[in-house]
């Protein structure tokens, strides 16, 4: 396995107590695949990505568990070694292209910065040529002329291309994309998603795509991990999760979006209530209070992970326990009607 996360836990101390943002995440990322992490704000998806990149200083954050890439334990690496990996082996695309670029630096120098830090022997001339090549690769026309411009001179879509150029210039083996298109319009989103897909093929990198948009997931992902309240509640191949959602949260997420390919006037399912308070995480299942199929056990004992048929398709839900089979079958029949 290329990247393995085992029992990853992250919590932050605040005046109000300790927020358990990530509560025991296990994830595998294979070489060359696109893994989508889906979930609402506050479910721990960005914290997980930032922890892989070691962007969360600890202390003050409390981090436990393991993040291994090619067998190397990233969480135990000294900062100096991590700096060699960050930006070189792992690239990151941030959500907001308006704030993730330095407004006082020319975009060419910004893209080149990472390159020259990781390869001290590279001459300026060589580095500049690499920047031109990368700018061309991310679809910025006339790279030589753009090199000396500033971020404010670009549109949102073009800025996101610059951010992507910065992330891929060192040809990372793992690319973390945290809501890369959320701040963009749909037509620009289509351009950027196409670009990330091409780069993945071209560089052979693995991509972790963090998003809350199931449409984007369907377009991009080989595999999906659904996050809820700091845990992976369902994971599996993209087709399996969409065709056979096996956690009530996943099904509700799929049902609650009005879809272009469905008829009007079909009732829109809702998920009542709000996600649990992670200052005091619930004793049982995190989705218990909002779950349409909840059973008594769900409120008291945290569910185990069960296989849902297809290889690698797992759900963190008591419904898949053998004793719950009548209830599960009833839910499976009802799940798409909301």
């Amino acid at each position: 396995m290329f990247v393995e996360l085992r029992d990853l836990r992250v919590s932050f101390k605040t005046y109000g107590g300790s927020v358990r943002a990530v509560r025991g995440v296990n994830l595998d990322i294979e070489r060359g695949e696109c893994l989508a992490i889906v979930g609402e704000s506050g479910c721990g998806k960005s914290v997980t990505a930032n922890t892989i990149m070691r962007l969360i200083p600890s202390p003050p954050a409390e981090i436990s568990g393991s993040v291994r890439m090619d067998g190397t334990e990233l969480l135990a690496l000294p900062e100096k070694r991590m700096k060699e990996i960050r930006g070189k082996s792992i690239g990151m695309i941030f959500q907001d292209p308006m704030t993730s670029l330095d407004p006082t630096m020319r975009i060419g120098s910004q893209i080149m910065e990472g390159l020259r830090i990781h390869d001290k022997k590279m001459s300026r001339h060589e580095a500049e040529n690499m920047v031109y090549e990368t700018l061309g690769m991310v679809g910025i026309p006339n790279p030589r002329a753009q090199f000396k411009r500033y971020a404010y001179e670009f549109s949102g879509g073009m800025r996101q291309r610059v951010v992507i150029a910065m992330a891929v210039i060192c040809k990372p083996r793992l690319l973390l994309a945290d809501e890369p298109t959320t701040a963009l319009d749909v037509t620009t989103q289509a351009q950027i998603l196409g670009l990330i897909r091409d780069l993945k093929t071209h560089l052979g990198s693995s991509v972790v795509l963090i998003t809350h948009d199931m449409g984007v997931v369907a377009n991009m992902a080989d595999r999906i991990a659904v996050f809820y309240a700091g845990q992976v509640v369902e994971e599996g191949a993209s087709e399996d999760v969409f065709r056979n959602p096996s956690h009530p949260y996943t099904a509700a997420l799929l049902n609650s979006r009005p879809r272009l390919d469905r008829d009007r006037k079909q009732k829109l399912a809702t998920i009542g209530g709000a996600p649990p308070d992670l200052f005091a995480p619930p004793q049982g299942c995190g989705f218990f209070e909002r779950c349409p199929a909840a059973m008594e056990v769900c409120g008291d004992i945290p569910p185990s992970r069960y296989d849902c048929g297809a290889p690698g398709h797992r759900s963190l839900c008591w419904l898949h326990h053998e004793f719950a089979s009548p209830r599960r079958d009833e839910w499976l029949r009802m799940r798409f009607s909301g």
Partner: peptide, 26 residues
């Protein structure tokens, strides 16, 4: 173009359908 840019939450149909991708910006 606007319609085809909106991804459908269904991997099989999403991959099968035709996408019109607009060049450039507004």
């Amino acid at each position: 173009a606007l319609m085809s840019a909106i991804p459908i939450a269904d991997p099989v149909r999403e991959r099968a359908r035709e996408h019109v991708i607009l060049e450039g910006d507004v």
